[in-house]
C-alpha cells in the first residue's frame, strides 16, 4: 500500500494547481491509520475533559437534574454573588493562599536541596540506597499517609509518647487549628521529597562535566561549583516546575485535607476545593459549587499566566 501512495504522490506532483480539498483528502488517505489511532483519544478528550467544561455552564444556571445542563434556567452571576457574600469567603481564600505559600516556601525547594546533596555524593552505593529509601513514600496512598498522621499525632500516639519523655504535655495535634498547616506541609515534604528530586537529578546528569573542570581550574570549591555551575544549569527546570506549581496553587490536594480536617480545624484547614466538595457532593448544591469551582479555576489560570509572563520577562524561561 505505501508504494501505491508514493505513486499517487509522484503522479500528482506534476500538477501545478491543486485544490486544498484534494490535498486534505490525500493526506487523510495516506495517514488513515494515524488518524484512526487518534480517534479514541479525541473521543476521550472530548467527553471527559471538554465535556465537563461544557458542564460548567451550570455555574450560571439554576440546575435541576430533570432539566439537564441546557434546559435549566439561566441565573447569571447569582451563584458567584452568593459566594462572594458568604461569611466564609475570606477564610477560604486566606486558607488556600496560606497553605500554598507554605508549600512554595518549604515543599518546593526541598527536592531541589535533596537533589543537590545527592549530586555531591561520590559513594554510588550509598547514593542508590538513599534514593531508593526516599522514593518509598511516593508509593503509599493518601489514605495511608492520613492514617499514619492520625495514629502518630493522636493524644496517646507516638509523637506525644516521645515528647512525653522530654516532659512535654500531650497535644491533640489534629484537633488544633494552629498545627494543621504544619502537619499538612511537612507530611507533603516527607512524601514528595525523594520522588520530586528525580527530575532535578535527571537535569543535573545532562550538565557538561567540562564545566566543573573549568570551575575547579579557577579554584572553585564544591560549594562554589554548586552555586555557579549546578544551580544555573538546572535553573530552566526549576523555573518551569515553579510556574506549574503556581498554576496548581488553588487546586491544592483536597483529598488529603478531606481525610485530615474536621470542624475543629476548619478555621485553618478549609480551602476552596474542600468547600466545593462539601457543598457539591455532600450537599448536592450543584450550580453553586460548580460556580465556586469555576472561580477557583479562573484564578489559577490567571496566576499561571501571570507567573509565565513575569518569568518570560525576567529570566527568558517560560512554559509557553
Amino acid at each position: 500500500m505505501p508504494d501505491l501512495d508514493n505513486n499517487l504522490v509522484q503522479a500528482t506532483a506534476g500538477i501545478p494547481v491543486e485544490s486544498k480539498r484534494s490535498i486534505i483528502k490525500k493526506d487523510l488517505i495516506r495517514n488513515r491509520y494515524i488518524y484512526l489511532m487518534l480517534l479514541p483519544v479525541i473521543a476521550y478528550y472530548g467527553l471527559f475533559h471538554y465535556g465537563p467544561m461544557y458542564g460548567l455552564l451550570i455555574a450560571f444556571k439554576d440546575y435541576g437534574i430533570a432539566d439537564g445542563v441546557w434546559q435549566s434556567p439561566w441565573v447569571g452571576f447569582t451563584h458567584f454573588q452568593h459566594f462572594f457574600e458568604n461569611p466564609y469567603f475570606w477564610r477560604l481564600i486566606r486558607n488556600t493562599l496560606m497553605i500554598n505559600i507554605y508549600e512554595l516556601l518549604f515543599a518546593f525547594p526541598a527536592p531541589i536541596i535533596l537533589a543537590l546533596l545527592l549530586n555531591e555524593l561520590r559513594l554510588i552505593l550509598f547514593k542508590r540506597v538513599v534514593q531508593t529509601i526516599s522514593y518509598l513514600p511516593h508509593f503509599i496512598s493518601i489514605v495511608v499517609v492520613a492514617g499514619m498522621l492520625v495514629d502518630f499525632a493522636a493524644r496517646d500516639g507516638l509523637i506525644n509518647n516521645i515528647l512525653g519523655v522530654f516532659g512535654m504535655e500531650p497535644v491533640a495535634f489534629l484537633q488544633e487549628p494552629g498545627w494543621f498547616r504544619f502537619i499538612y506541609v511537612s507530611s507533603g515534604v516527607w512524601q514528595g521529597i525523594g520522588w520530586g528530586s528525580i527530575i532535578y537529578l535527571a537535569a543535573m546528569s545532562t550538565i557538561d562535566p567540562t564545566l566543573y573542570d573549568a570551575a575547579r581550574m579557577d579554584g572553585a570549591g564544591r560549594w562554589k561549583q554548586t552555586l555557579h555551575v549546578t544551580i544555573p544549569d538546572i535553573m530552566p527546570t526549576i523555573v518551569i516546575l515553579f510556574i506549574l506549581s503556581i498554576g496548581s496553587m488553588l487546586s491544592v490536594g483536597s483529598e488529603k485535607i478531606i481525610l485530615l480536617y474536621n470542624p475543629l480545624t476548619y478555621e485553618t484547614a478549609d480551602v476552596i476545593s474542600t468547600y466545593v466538595y462539601r457543598k457539591g457532593i455532600l450537599g448536592a448544591d450543584f450550580g453553586y459549587s460548580a460556580a465556586v469551582g469555576l472561580f477557583n479555576s479562573v484564578i489559577s489560570f490567571v496566576l499561571l499566566t501571570l507567573a509565565n509572563t513575569i518569568s518570560k520577562r525576567v529570566s527568558e524561561h517560560r512554559l509557553w
Binding site: 465535556g51 465537563p52 467544561m53 458542564g55 457532593i281 499561571l304
Partner: peptide, 12 residues
C-alpha cells in the same frame, strides 16, 4: 491547565 472540576466531571 484548566478543568471542569469535580461536579461537572461527576455528571459526565
Amino acid at each position: 491547565l484548566f478543568s471542569g472540576g469535580i461536579i461537572p466531571t461527576y455528571f459526565v
